[in-house]
Design a protein around this nucleic acid. Structure first.
Lengths: 183, 183
DNA sequence: TTGCAATAGTCGCGATTGCAACAGTTACAG
DNA sequence: CTGTAACTGTTGCAATCGCGACTATTGCAA
């Protein structure tokens, strides 16, 4: 069956996601799925289903921010972290986001140039540079936060508000599991 | 709603919870979370939680395959698709995986050189090239599939086998929702 | 038929990435 | 104190990426 393989698939898809392709009509297939004993049931493979749901639930966002603000995903991530946790230094963003520090460094540079955040030397530890949102940065982030709220509400409407806690509970169980022990 | 943005956030947060950071002693944080009215509650933000669970459920896999087989994520995705749906042509893999066609093309080249799949001209449509696994490719894929099965079983143990259908149902609802109408 | 649009796959090229080296700064053992 | 190790943030560079141009082939309208 298809456990591993699916984890694979999901992961890959996560990173390379490009939403609209799903919508495009597909031509006739020349291939059929192989009903091979060595292959597993993809439909019930949880990592795969989780991936699909995740992908679906976060669709549309990239195109909104890239089109409207001409900014990359990485830059958004940095901006959000500065907004939520600022003043914050780059290293902390690296830890929170698991982005490479060079990536963070470059994103910060662009955001500073753009005027969405400031980068001041830390008085206590001069290796660090304290990052903070500018007024403009705050405005944009506020707009995005509002969007996020509305989006979440839409999802809750879809699954039924009485089942939200149920879903969150299951998801938290999965998040808490210790995979290292299984392999 | 908050589609895009949330994908963003999820990504960020994923790292925050990364296990090893807990072990390594961290220096004092200079930043605290900002309890700002414009910020929303991340803990109950479904795209974020979904992302976290997805990430968690598919953890460990990349390092296993990259270390053992010295192959990239993209190459695995292509290999899996050929195994499940082969004979298949590149264009179909592009549609299924949402990888760029040049990426698929390059991955296929490497896999052919490596001897894990064959690329024969399609008799009906000579633009297409039919991809199929070699014996060696099948063996490797079988091993990965077995891993996937075991992995899925472990997740099911975690959440309880009686709640699997419940979770799948909720996930499918999310997958089926029409986000375009909400924005 | 014929001609043009559409498709499959490859490739060139600038942009982006991740790794690692580096400079500046701080922590700490002895 | 002192010297070494560790840490922060930047940058160089090779590898990879994605966009689009391109060739070869097929589909289809007139």
């Amino acid at each position: 069956m298809l456990t591993r393989w699916q984890a694979e698939l999901q992961e890959e898809l996560r990173q390379e996601r490009h939403p609209l392709d799903f919508l495009a009509g597909k031509p006739e297939r020349i291939s059929q799925i192989n009903e091979d004993a060595t292959m597993f049931n993809l439909e019930e493979f949880l990592p795969y289903r989780l991936y699909q749901a995740t992908e679906r639930s976060s669709q549309k966002f990239p195109e909104i921010y890239t089109a409207k603000y001409d900014i990359t995903r990485v830059e958004w991530r940095v901006l959000f972290n500065v907004g939520l946790y600022g003043p914050i230094n780059s290293q902390e963003i690296v830890e929170r986001t698991v982005l490479d520090k060079s990536k963070v460094s470059r994103a910060v540079q662009k955001l500073v140039v753009r005027g969405w955040l400031t980068r001041d030397g830390d008085k206590v530890d001069r290796r660090r540079k304290a990052l903070q949102l500018t007024v403009e940065g705050e405005e944009i982030l506020a707009e995005l936060s509002a969007r996020a709220e509305r989006h979440n509400a839409a999802i809750i409407r879809e699954i039924g508000s009485d089942r939200v806690e149920e879903l969150l509970g299951l998801l938290r169980k999965i998040e808490a599991m210790d995979l290292l022990a299984e392999e």
